[in-house]
Simulated scan of single mutants.
Amino acid sequence: MCRWLAYSGSPVRLDELLFKPANSLVMQSKHSRLGAETTNGDGFGVGWYGTLPTPGIFRSTEPAWNDSNLRELSSQASAGRVFAHIRASTGSAVQQTNCHPFRHGQWLWMHNGVITDFPKVRRDLALAVDPDLFPLIEGSTDSEVFFMLALTLGLEEDPHAAVAAAVGLIERVGRSHGIEYPLQMTVATTNGDTTWAFRYSSEGRSRTLFHSTDVATLRAHYPDNVMLEKITDDTVVVVSEPLGDLRGAWQEVPESTGIAVHDGGIDFHPFIPSDSADAPPGR
């Protein structure tokens, strides 16, 4: 499937996240330790918030380990909120418009997982997208349709409720087509101020998701760690798999859980799909 990271905290140069950690995202593109696939080489993307209200994005169909432009960009650019994603396609084409993160206005979105048997349910789900948003779908992935459904169902007003409604809709449509386990997901989304992340699957066996632990405590335990000296106490990183082996640095997000990261704090909420009967499946 895929691997991703969502960083928030003091401005950091992108290569400090993407290249330098022992198990960096670029390393995971070749040798993922916890992913469904070892290799995630079907493109990558980076989104970050700079001086403009809308985030910048850079996406490529090259494998992350083989793109010299990514190394050049990441050695110069820095930001306090960064999304990065490496892709392993579940069947859709390897093209830039299918690379994450996806953007709408000030919002970014990343997904690791799959809408099961997406070709069977694609039409029904697409018909549930707001008509004003439908023309904005550029690629052919289930992840982008998922994003548009969340926007349709109120992502910009209440992200947790909107994602729960989108998941409920996906499951209802999938089961109407005889699909036992319609969805597998870890999702991250942000408006540049708060990051929301979700771990859920219809089967109850979700892909891995972790968050970094308290930086001040880690700094006290590892006073000689150079990386910990560079970041502030409000730094939080949410990742598909840990970026290194520093003991105590990472905690797993529980199954069926949503988190909100804001000003260095993490709020946890049970994640339960909600009934989306207002968005008909179109079948």
Score class of each variant (00 low, 15 high):
106 Q>Y: 06
108 L>H: 09
111 H>Y: 07
116 T>Q: 08
117 D>I: 00
117 D>K: 04
117 D>S: 09
117 D>C: 04
117 D>W: 02
118 F>T: 01
119 P>M: 03
120 K>V: 14
120 K>D: 15
122 R>C: 13
123 R>Y: 05
124 D>W: 08
125 L>S: 05
125 L>F: 05
126 A>L: 07
127 L>V: 14
127 L>Q: 15
127 L>F: 14
128 A>F: 09
128 A>E: 08
128 A>M: 11
129 V>C: 13
130 D>I: 07
130 D>Y: 07
132 D>Q: 12
132 D>G: 14
134 F>Q: 02
134 F>N: 00
134 F>R: 07
135 P>C: 13
137 I>E: 10
137 I>A: 10
138 E>F: 03
138 E>D: 12
139 G>K: 09
139 G>V: 09
141 T>D: 10
143 S>P: 14
145 V>F: 06
145 V>D: 08
146 F>Y: 12
146 F>D: 03
146 F>R: 01
146 F>C: 02
147 F>E: 00
148 M>P: 00
148 M>E: 09
149 L>V: 14
150 A>D: 14
150 A>N: 11
153 L>Q: 13
153 L>D: 01
155 L>R: 06
157 E>D: 12
157 E>S: 08
157 E>F: 03
159 P>F: 14
161 A>Q: 10
161 A>H: 06
162 A>C: 07
162 A>G: 08
162 A>M: 07
163 V>P: 01
164 A>P: 04
164 A>W: 06
165 A>S: 15
165 A>I: 05
166 A>G: 03
166 A>N: 03
167 V>G: 00
168 G>R: 09
168 G>F: 11
168 G>K: 08
169 L>N: 04
170 I>V: 15
170 I>Y: 10
171 E>W: 00
172 R>M: 05
172 R>D: 12
172 R>E: 11
174 G>R: 05
174 G>F: 07
174 G>H: 06
176 S>G: 13
176 S>R: 10
176 S>L: 08
177 H>W: 13
177 H>I: 05
178 G>I: 02
178 G>V: 02
178 G>A: 02
179 I>R: 10
179 I>C: 11
181 Y>H: 04
181 Y>N: 06
181 Y>S: 03
183 L>C: 03
183 L>F: 04
184 Q>S: 10
184 Q>Y: 07
185 M>V: 04
185 M>C: 13
185 M>G: 00
187 V>E: 06
187 V>C: 12
187 V>W: 07
188 A>M: 15
189 T>M: 10
190 T>H: 05
191 N>E: 15
192 G>L: 02
192 G>D: 05
193 D>C: 07
193 D>F: 08
193 D>A: 13
194 T>E: 14
194 T>I: 11
195 T>Q: 15
195 T>A: 15
196 W>L: 06
196 W>H: 15
198 F>N: 01
198 F>V: 02
198 F>K: 02
198 F>Q: 01
198 F>L: 01
199 R>H: 04
199 R>N: 02
199 R>I: 02
199 R>P: 02
199 R>F: 03
202 S>K: 03
203 E>I: 04
204 G>A: 13
205 R>F: 10
205 R>N: 11
206 S>I: 05
207 R>F: 13
210 F>T: 09
211 H>P: 00
211 H>R: 11
212 S>K: 09
212 S>W: 06
213 T>E: 15
